[in-house]
Write a protein that binds this DNA or RNA. Structure first.
Lengths: 161, 161
DNA sequence: ATAATAAGGATATATAATATCCTTAATAAA
DNA sequence: TTTATTAAGGATATTATATATCCTTATTAT
């Protein structure tokens, strides 16, 4: 069970957008070039973020994406769920219903105890992701980044807006 | 990101094995028939459990599998990891290293803050799974099961040992 | 001896992840 | 008004993974 690459791309893009000047848009082209990922495929992830109301896009020259709300109100979970969906990492196939001893009168029963435990673990994962914001990680990232690299990166994007 | 069906099968099989009389083996054939899943494919999951030391198999007529240790010492996590592997659900592809402004002198740096947050969520998921034992869920399952169904199920397996 | 079984290698099939291509409508700038 | 640029998203191709089956081997109880 492994998350798709688009989750990582989406999170990094949100962090970049969080570091941009207010109101300015960054085109998919540059987000893709900067991260070294395929533009057309990254575009799908950004569309998912846009549909989820996390970022907003505008058309035409100078178009692109920007955050749709403050970075401190964007959780990791919302980004992950925008890209991967909201359904649980565990899908119960109800194989206990294949028990050959089972009579029709016995069904349906409450949620399977195995599924319940798996759902609880899934929720623990989501709770942790819910507690992390794009702004918090953005601050941590920039704090650790060498000052000159930070400056060069800011310049790289400002030249392309 | 979704867990494979083998995880569910493996957990259900462990619960069944936990309810069997001491020392007795249950053949893959019956575990597959009981759960309504393909025998040959289930066999792969059981082999994984066997390699992980969770269950043990024996050959020949009356052969099959039994738990290799007490059910209260078998965690959900060990079963999940036996089947799905131990690597994190998030794989960091280090796309920050594709930053065109990055100079060679800057690398390598500490773990990416995004990856760190994702790893933490992964660990929260595992921690929850680690806290659940096969015996605890087995007890919960049997407690909820109608008495006659429980009896019929026990009889079904005892006829096949 | 014989039949039953786990173990596991090899391979096939189905499903999902990854990636590209193309059209459309909107927008800014020339 | 014209042109270039862009998000949006449909369609399709490619690759990787999950699912499933088949087969051989060594072991064991009867």
């Amino acid at each position: 069970m492994i998350l798709g690459n688009q989750v990582e791309w989406a999170l990094h893009c949100c962090v970049i957008l969080a570091s941009q000047p207010k109101e300015s848009y960054v085109a998919t082209k540059y987000l893709a070039e900067f991260h070294g990922v395929p533009k057309e495929y990254l575009s799908k992830a950004l569309q998912a973020l846009s549909n989820a109301g996390i970022i907003e896009g505008t058309l035409g020259p100078r178009g692109g994406y920007r955050l749709a709300k403050p970075a401190n109100r964007i959780s990791f979970l919302s980004v992950v769920e925008a890209v991967e969906g909201t359904s649980s990492t565990f899908v119960c196939k109800e194989i206990r219903e294949n028990n050959p001893c089972l009579k029709k009168k016995d069904r349906p029963s409450a949620v399977c105890a195995i599924a319940k435990a798996m759902y609880k673990a899934d929720e623990a994962w989501r709770k942790e992701l819910r507690s992390v914001s794009i702004s918090a990680v953005s601050e941590e990232l920039t704090a650790k980044l060498p000052a000159d690299l930070l400056k060069a990166t800011e310049a790289w994007f400002s030249e392309r807006v």
